[in-house]
């Protein structure tokens, strides 16, 4: 498909996406091109439907997720490799990882998780401004790198909370 992911869903090319509209449009499109609509059609139509439906799924999954969407948006505008993250930032990450390893109980984990969540939100807002207001792709790339670290940490935190609550 020659349309970019935003064009497929007829959405403005921005980081801030109306997820409700995205989901509705995704549903409308798949309802008309999904392979299930072509189960009684010719083999060639089935093949086309499979390819297009796959592309629409890929577009939807990308735009639905903050990290993937930001990466896609940057790639549309900027082709350079990302600059390295600041050592201050990396040090803070290491400290937090070490702190997480020490946590063995639910209460301190909840406090820790709230802190990381807050940082994720802050970083996401920063990224959003860099992309949508400033169109500053270089700094946005760095911000995205930081957000990836924070998201990973949040995932690990959530996994630990599951483990602790199961036992």
């Amino acid at each position: 498909m020659s349309l970019n992911y935003y064009e497929i869903f007829n959405l403005p090319v921005e980081f801030n996406v109306d997820l409700k509209s995205l989901h509705e449009r995704y549903g409308e499109i798949q309802k008309s091109i999904h392979p299930d609509r072509f189960a009684a059609a010719t083999k060639l139509e089935q093949q086309h439907s499979l390819v297009k439906s796959t592309q629409v799924n890929e577009a939807y999954q990308t735009l639905k997720n903050n990290l993937l969407r930001a990466k896609y948006l940057i790639e549309l505008n900027y082709k350079n490799d990302p600059l390295p993250l600041s050592s201050d930032f990396l040090m803070q990450q290491m400290e937090w990882e070490e702190e997480l390893e020490e946590i063995k109980e639910i209460e301190p984990l909840i406090v820790f998780k709230e802190n990381i969540k807050m940082n994720v939100q802050k970083e996401t807002l920063k990224l959003s401004k860099l992309l949508d207001q400033d169109r500053n792709w270089e700094d946005a790339q760095i911000s995205l790198g930081e957000l990836k670290f924070l998201s990973n940490l949040l995932t690990k935190t959530t996994e630990l909370s599951h483990t602790l609550s199961d036992n």
């Binding site: 007829n10 509209s21 509705e24 449009r25 409308e28 008309s32 297009k52 629409v56």
Partner: peptide, 17 residues
């Protein structure tokens, strides 16, 4: 087949707009 498919997509969205 391909052009009809693209047209369906546009139709599906134009309704929404």
């Amino acid at each position: 087949a391909s052009k009809r498919m693209d047209q369906s997509i546009k139709k599906a969205l134009s309704g929404k707009n």
